[in-house]
Design a protein around this nucleic acid. Structure first.
Length: 564
RNA sequence: GCGCCCGUAGCUCAGGGGAUAGAGCGCCGGCCUCCGGAGCCGGGUGCGCAGGUUCGAUUCCUGCCGGGCGCACCA
């Protein structure tokens, strides 16, 4: 696979090497005691005045070396060999940081690299080809997708893309809850609507599904089957209705998600776990391993062995397995399929489920650390400055379909992914559909379109884009140019960090900052000018920027428009 | 009551053991003879409170206060 070792990472490693060499040299001279070098960082300081890189080596060395950090820093600094390095000067600052100021052009070599790698620029190999499954949305197929599902869809899909880009072998999966209690309620609700449509007295049960969508579904059913089921045994007709409705509902969910840019590798049926005996096998395994017991006719799992407050029922006294039992079988199946990591994205209202699921994974004999659960906080919709109330009971909620129609796919996805999953998401519908500078997604896309426009301009003048390896990049050097290049060179590390932290919102933020730097540069300097050499160099710069913005947008599932 | 998440600028949110804590929006003032003004530039007395760990805490730990969500033989 392609892997990007960018100039930032190379330089970081080289500085770390210089520091170790300087320490060794100081030891030989007796200027510092020969202690083991503790973990230290070479980082990019927040403050520009603190150089391009800085290290805390002297600070962490203070204790083992039994000396003042500033003195250690001075010693190290004097031993650093700057020959054949991009470092221009070194200084000791603050409590004992060593700051490295680099030559102005130290990162320029990243530009031809970006253009050469193109859509592969930013690929990193932190995954090493390990198999990861991301399971997300997995909404009940009894209704429509709501805002929580939509957030999960955007988050899960972006995360999966990010992990792919970071070198994992990723599979996207949707778990279909097509079994159990809610299907029972679903059947009774369908039945009631069916009878109502045909003029009979019937009521949707209290705990059933009251949405209008189900009425529509049953109208279709009536068109197809008429009154054929009016007098058939309730069990039979409910089974037929459920089968019909599930097929329709799941198809609709799949289509909506595809419209949202989300395509799954696997759709996994809960019912299959029951039918195939997988649930029984999972229970048997837990029993063999000694984690089950009977109590009051029910079968219990010793969740309390795993730090959970109380034990959990796996099989009810009526003989029916619980959802949890199926979920255990499902996770056993996941690990049996050979995934090294299993990531689930859940709504925060399921957080209580996390410890017992991990406990179950451990009880089955797998590493509970291999199961990672991302909890998303709730989404609040705002329109005209007011919260949009949603109620599942009355079936009154904004669906993903409606959202897509109202604000469009790009805005919707960006809004869902721009915040940390931990944060309650305030989704301002008016802002999301605003085609103005208030809207952050357009700001990024506009930067991309602007660059495309420059290249169109070039084409109209019948000029060719420059060869990045031959352009004289030393002509670059204005502040906005330097800042832009530095930001571009950060992309591979940003991908790695976002993947490591399972945090697509980092990438969203990065793109916004990158777009800002492009706009600043654009406003301060002309790309196509009367100076051919400078024009070429700047075309390389904006061309590279276009690549990075395009790659970032793609990872977030957003389009990169050439014109807007 | 117990558990999980969150309290950072007027609002919405990043950040997260280090040196002067950031962005967007809103508000005020500037910038188009010029590649797209959906843009740019300038304007900021903010880490809920109290302890603790540390050379150093907004970041880690404990307690308290405030908000959200859980605590079914539901899913």
């Amino acid at each position: 696979m392609v892997e990007t070792i960018g100039v930032v990472e190379k330089t970081r490693r080289s500085i770390a090497g210089m520091l170790k060499a300087a320490f060794g040299s100081a030891c030989r001279k007796g200027a510092l005691p020969e202690v083991e070098v503790p973990d230290f960082v070479v980082e990019v300081p927040r403050e520009k005045d603190h150089g391009d890189f800085a290290t805390n080596l002297a600070l962490v060395l203070a204790k083992p070396a039994r000396s003042a950090p500033r003195r250690i820093a001075e010693t190290l600094a004097s031993e650093i060999d700057l020959r054949n390095s991009p470092v221009e000067r070194v200084e000791v600052a603050g409590p004992g940081f060593i700051n490295f100021h680099l030559k102005r052009d130290w990162a320029f070599s990243e530009l031809p690299l970006i253009l050469r790698l193109g859509e592969n620029y930013g690929r990193v190999n932190i995954g090493g080809g390990r198999k990861v499954q991301v399971e997300f949305v997995s909404a009940n197929p009894t209704g429509l997708l709501h805002m929580g599902n939509a957030r999960g869809a955007a988050l899960g899909d972006s995360l999966a893309s990010l992990l792919e880009f970071a070198g994992f072998d990723v599979s996207r999966e949707y778990y279909i809850n097509d079994a159990g209690n809610q299907i029972e309620h679903f059947g009774r609700s369908l039945e009631a609507r069916y009878l109502q449509i045909l003029g009979r007295q019937a009521r949707v049960p209290e705990e059933g599904y009251h949405g209008e969508d189900i009425v529509e579904t049953m109208k279709g059913f009536v068109r197809q089957f008429g009154d054929r089921y009016l007098d058939s045994p309730p069990e039979d007709r409910r089974r037929a209705m459920v089968e019909y409705a599930l097929k329709e509902k799941i198809g609709a969910i799949r289509r909506t998600l595809e419209e949202f840019g989300v395509v799954y590798d696997v759709w996994f049926s809960e019912q299959f776990l029951h039918d195939s005996g997988a649930v029984r096998e999972a229970i048997d395994r837990l029993r063999r391993r000694g984690f089950l017991y009977d109590h009051e006719d029910a079968l219990w799992f010793r969740a309390s062995d795993f730090g959970v407050e109380k034990d959990e029922v796996l099989v009810r006294s009526n003989g029916v397995p619980t959802y949890f039992a199926a979920d255990i079988a499902y996770h056993m199946n996941k690990f049996e399929r050979g995934f090294d990591r299993v990531i689930n994205i859940w709504g925060a209202d399921h957080h209580g489920h996390v410890p017992r699921m991990k406990g179950a994974v451990a009880a089955l004999g797998y590493d509970p650390e291999a199961l990672q659960i991302i909890l998303m906080q709730l989404v609040r919709l705002y329109r005209n400055g007011e919260i949009v109330r949603m109620s599942k009971r009355t079936g009154q909620f904004v669906t993903l379909e409606e959202l897509l129609e109202e604000v469009g796919r790009d805005a919707a996805r960006y809004f869902f992914v721009m915040r940390s999953p931990d944060s309650h998401l305030e989704f301002d519908l008016d802002l999301a559909k605003a085609r103005t500078n208030e809207n952050p997604v357009f700001y990024i896309q506009y930067a991309h379109a602007r660059i495309c426009s420059i290249f169109r301009q070039l084409e109209e003048q019948r000029r060719d884009p420059p060869d990045p390896d031959r352009a004289d990049l030393s002509l670059l050097g204005e502040e906005p140019e330097i800042l832009l290049i530095r930001k571009l060179a950060d992309f591979p590390e940003e991908v790695a960090a976002s993947a490591r932290d399972l945090a697509p919102h980092r990438l969203a933020r990065y793109l916004h900052e990158l777009a800002g730097l492009l706009h600043s540069f654009y406003n301060a300097h002309r790309v196509i000018s009367g100076r051919p050499g400078l024009t070429e160099a700047r075309l390389v710069l904006v061309g590279a920027t276009r690549v990075v913005i395009g790659n970032g947008l793609r990872l977030l599932g957003l389009s990169a428009p050439e014109r807007m």
